[in-house]
Design a protein around this nucleic acid. Structure first.
Lengths: 257, 257
DNA sequence: CCAAAAGTGTTAAAAGTACACCCATGG
DNA sequence: CCATGGGTGTACTTTTAACACTTTTGG
């Protein structure tokens, strides 16, 4: 019979802790989906697995969460230790994957994070490889290795990392219109042109956007929201010099309209 | 010195598992933000804590994840055991909170979930209480207990549940325009009017929307996306009978435009 | 002088907004 | 017969989209 006193019910909190101490707790890891734009294409950084399970398949880099660090802390450690990336890297949580058998060895719950860097060359370790992402059908992607001796094509990742990738790409595409993530792809956020930004936009969304309209409206919107300002200076190239802009918005979010 | 062979590096996966077995693993819980609309206001279901930490404060219901269940499974169990809700309840993952000291007792990582039910009366246990949400400033909410003898006002929840609530409300408001979550609030999704749906819309977003336009455009958009259809029948009330609609879209997502 | 790259302008269609008008029902 | 709730129409503004035109540079 159910007790009417909330006290008794709430006591189950502590009881459950004692009880579950005898259970085996799950491992908790973070997995990182590190993106960049390479030659006008969205790309993801992967590592090859050298042992079972999923031996010889590519997968996302990951790391266990230590006793005294948060998931964000684990991602930072992963970035500096496994990818040897120093300095501030943009990351945001994607979502958590907890299927009981997602790792055949042990029960592992993984918190997936998205990361963005402006240049593939920042990752400078031999065990990480870049793959450009070609979206074919809905929810289906073809990965082509960059800098490979031959064009290695990878269609299936280890664990549930395919699903993670799919969700991450949707997230990037969804957020590019009303957040400032686009600026995280910029090699020089203090001096860039509308053309540069447009290329990134097209790489991420996978669809073309009219040049003139992008310059007029998109850049204007960014300015109205105080994210960028014209540095007035001009750049060099083949044709007419382009206006240059500087990214000044901290990491503030701006909701459209 | 860094090894050039990815194999050696990858081996750390297994090494780390062995190593971490000696660590204490974190507890992993799910916390549920169960929403409903009560008298034209968005409301959240909370429980009072009867012991430290955060004794006498209100907090979200939660549960530990068991060895052989996913986070979604834990949420289902939480819904049926602690809230005594049977049948299919709409839930979606919000995000995971992993600050080292978010629970002063133990290291607990929590995966927060949003849930939506159409009627407060579905929760029928004495330890759960409904609070309407009045958004005052940005990121600040006042909670007013429903059915309380006196109007109890709660401004601060236990643990990091305030932050969870804030993020959850933002999520609801953001998604109401391009997903079908609005229909999860409907008491009868097979027979409802534009007015009913408009009331929910206003309750969730906290802002008024023109009646005529809602009927014309919003309902039309839903129909174009195959989410609802006119049942042709009319309903009863004071004024002119209203067209009734039926929700037919599974749980498909529709991106605007 | 011409091709290339980039800024700016023009126009039409689509979407959003405000508000008015008419319809059907219950008291 | 009138207040009330609900459908529908209209006019206006804003946004989006397509494309043309002009400016500036390098070869």
């Amino acid at each position: 019979m159910k007790q009417n006193n909330p006290s008794t019910e709430q006591g189950s909190d502590r009881r459950e802790i004692r009880m579950l101490s005898e259970y085996k707790h799950p491992y908790v890891t973070v997995d990182l989906l590190l993106f960049s734009v390479i030659d006008g294409q969205l790309a993801i950084n992967l590592t090859v697995r050298d042992e079972e399970p999923f031996k010889d398949m590519y997968a996302l880099p990951g790391s266990f969460i230590r006793e005294n660090e948060s998931a964000e802390g684990a991602v930072e450690r992963l970035l500096s230790d496994k990818l040897e990336l120093s300095g501030q890297i943009y990351t945001e949580q994607l979502m958590t994957f907890s299927d009981v058998n997602r790792d055949p060895r042990e029960r592992v719950i993984s918190i997936a994070y998205i990361g963005i860097i402006p240049d593939k060359a920042m990752v400078n370790v031999p065990w990480m490889k870049w793959f450009t992402i070609q979206s074919s059908n809905v929810g289906s992607y073809k990965l082509c290795q960059v800098d490979g001796d031959e064009s290695f094509i990878c269609t299936c990742l280890g664990f549930d990392h395919d699903k993670m990738l799919e969700i991450a790409i949707d997230r990037l595409r969804g957020k590019i219109d009303y957040t400032d993530i686009i600026f995280k792809f910029l090699k020089d956020s203090k001096q860039f042109t509308a053309g540069t930004l447009r290329e990134i936009y097209q790489s991420v969304t996978g669809q073309e956007i009219n040049r003139g309209n992008f310059t007029k409206y998109q850049m204007n919107t960014y300015m109205e929201h105080g994210l960028i300002k014209k540095t007035g200076s001009i750049s060099i190239g083949r044709g007419r010099p382009a206006d240059t802009y500087s990214y000044i918005g901290g990491d503030r979010l701006w909701i459209k309209y």
